[in-house]
Structures are given as C-alpha cells and as structure tokens.
C-alpha cells in the first residue's frame, strides 16, 4: 500500500469519525430510534464515486469500529455494522449497474441502512412489532440519502481535478 494511500485513508477515516461525533451532538428531531442524517456517509459516498468501492469499504468498517469503541458499546456496534454493511453493499451493487444517479444510489443506501437497523433492533429486543417503524424509516432514509447524495455529488464534481 502506497504511503500516500495510507495517509489519504487515515484522513478519510478521521473525517468520517468527526462527522459521526458532530452528528451525535445534534439532538434527535424526531422521537423515533434510528433517524439520522448520516453525515459520515458524505465521506463514504464520495470515496465510492471518486476513489474506489474498496476504499469506501475500508473507511466504513474502520470508522464504525472506532466510533463504537470510543463512544459506544458492543451493542451499538451490532447496529452500526448491520446498517453499514447493508447500506454500503447496496450502494456498491447499484452503482455498478450504472442505471441511477448519485442521489438515487445514496437514497437506497440510506434506506438499506435503516432496514439493517430495524432488523438488528428486532433481533436484539426479540420484538417483531418494531417493524411498525418501517414506513417512517423508509421516508427518513429517503430524505437523508437525498441530502447526502446531493452534497457528495457536488463534492465529486468540485474536486474533479484533484488527484488523490
């Protein structure tokens, strides 16, 4: 691995972690578990489109592990991993098809993240009824994904000439 790549990935992970922290300081607008903007996904979607899906996976995994270790607990890790794996996996596949715009790919990522969280919550609490949160989380995932996709798309466009 080239030194430059190591430094770049380190920087990306640090940025994603800071965004996680910033987001955790924003009080929940809606009283439903799992609703978030997903600011760290700015970094992930940017990497996915501008660099490579492999770098996006590396940054996503390390960021999830570190944030859970620093500020959370093992249970939070389960939720984060479930969301991150589904979200990034779906975005990588959807991007590969080349059928949809960045915003749509990001929206599907947001929704899949929320579905992962619901599934983890159902298994964790052994309560199937949590599925009633699905409609709200579909909607919030769409809005959050659109915002992240829009900004990431703009970043990719603006930093087109930069060499990473």
């Amino acid at each position: 691995m080239k030194t430059k790549r190591v430094a770049f990935l380190g920087l990306s992970i640090a940025l994603a972690m800071i965004l996680s922290f910033v987001e955790s300081q924003i009080p929940a607008l809606v009283a439903i578990p799992g609703i978030k903007v997903g600011l760290p996904n700015l970094v992930i979607v940017f990497l996915l489109y501008r660099i490579s899906w492999k770098d996006a996976v590396i940054v996503s995994i390390i960021r999830t592990l570190l944030v859970s270790m620093l500020f959370g607990n093992i249970q939070m890790l389960t939720f984060s991993v479930a969301g991150a794996v589904l979200s990034l996996g779906s975005m990588i596949l959807l991007k590969k098809t080349n059928w949809f715009s960045t915003i749509t790919v990001s929206i599907v990522g947001g929704i899949c993240h929320n579905i992962g969280q619901i599934v983890a919550a159902i298994l964790w609490t052994q309560t199937a009824g949590i599925v009633t949160y699905l409609p709200v989380l579909l909607l919030s995932g769409t809005i959050a994904g659109a915002v992240i996709g829009l900004i990431s798309g703009m970043l990719v466009e603006k930093l087109k000439k930069w060499r990473f």
Partner: peptide
C-alpha cells in the same frame, strides 16, 4: 411503542 435498545427493553 417505546424502544430502549441498550437494555433490550420494549
């Protein structure tokens, strides 16, 4: 419902 994820309580 009210979900307290950490305590696995609903």
């Amino acid at each position: 419902k009210i979900v307290c994820q950490i305590n696995q309580l609903v």
